[in-house]
């Protein structure tokens, strides 16, 4: 195992996984929040768009979306971010991870919305806050606090799902694992090494989110 660590740059590969996950997570949080707001908005059309998005994206395999971003979007539709294939693949991978997990962020937040009593919105409107102000000052902050635990699960799933980016050639942990098992023969040791790497990434996050959800819980 020592020679594998010496021969391959595991750190660079996991750093790529972290970058991919971080950018994907930020995108997913923004888009997911927007979708959640659409799904609870009083406008029927927005609600319908939000619902359709979640149902379509959530039920599409991530690998399919990932491959489509290159085969479909880049090659057929010409939506390319860079002439360099690796740069283009990285940007698309971040976008696809964000787009895919936004559906899950939306659902996590919606469960958070359900923890906010109706009276909170009525009180907000009663003091003259607009819909946007009620949302940003009263409803969303409480919804986020109520959704910390499911959002944490979504983030952990996102980190693990980011390995799918190897399917379009992003040099992340999963890509390096393929390289190593191609060269050094696939052994449980190599898989174990990468499994440990992901546990190191996700386990502290899980613990942190658990304590965060306890600390941020809104007392009623």
């Amino acid at each position: 195992m020592g020679d594998i660590l010496a021969k391959y740059n595991l750190f660079a590969a996991f750093w790529m996984t972290i970058k991919l996950s971080a950018l994907g997570a930020v995108g997913a949080l923004l888009l997911g929040t927007l979708l959640a707001v659409m799904r609870v908005s009083p406008v029927t059309t927005l609600r319908a768009i939000g619902t359709s998005y979640v149902n379509v994206v959530r039920n599409t395999p991530l690998t399919l979306l990932m491959v489509f971003s290159i085969l479909g979007a880049t090659f057929t539709l010409g939506l390319s971010f860079s002439d360099q294939a690796t740069t283009n693949a990285f940007i698309w991978a971040c976008i696809i991870i964000a787009v895919y997990h936004a559906a899950f962020v939306c659902e996590a937040l919606r469960s958070g919305f359900n923890t906010v009593p109706q009276g909170q919105a009525e009180a907000a409107r009663s003091i003259g806050l607009t819909f946007a102000q009620s949302l940003s000052q009263v409803i969303l902050p409480q919804a986020f606090r109520g959704a910390v635990a499911p959002l944490g699960s979504t983030l952990i799933a996102l980190i693990k799902n980011s390995t799918v980016a190897a399917a379009i050639g992003v040099a992340d942990a999963a890509g390096l694992m393929k390289t190593i098992s191609e060269n050094e023969t696939g052994t449980l040791g190599v898989f174990g090494l990468f499994a440990i790497g992901f546990v190191i990434l996700t386990l502290p996050l899980g613990l942190w989110f658990t304590s965060l959800s306890r600390r941020l819980a809104v007392k009623r």
Binding site: G119, E122, A123, T130, Q142, V218, K219
Partner: peptide, 18 residues
């Protein structure tokens, strides 16, 4: 919203922002 700002409302269940 502007008009509601001029009309105070007190609820049975208080509805303070938790």
């Amino acid at each position: 919203a502007e008009l509601r700002a001029d009309v105070g409302m007190v609820f049975q269940s208080f509805n303070l922002f938790a």
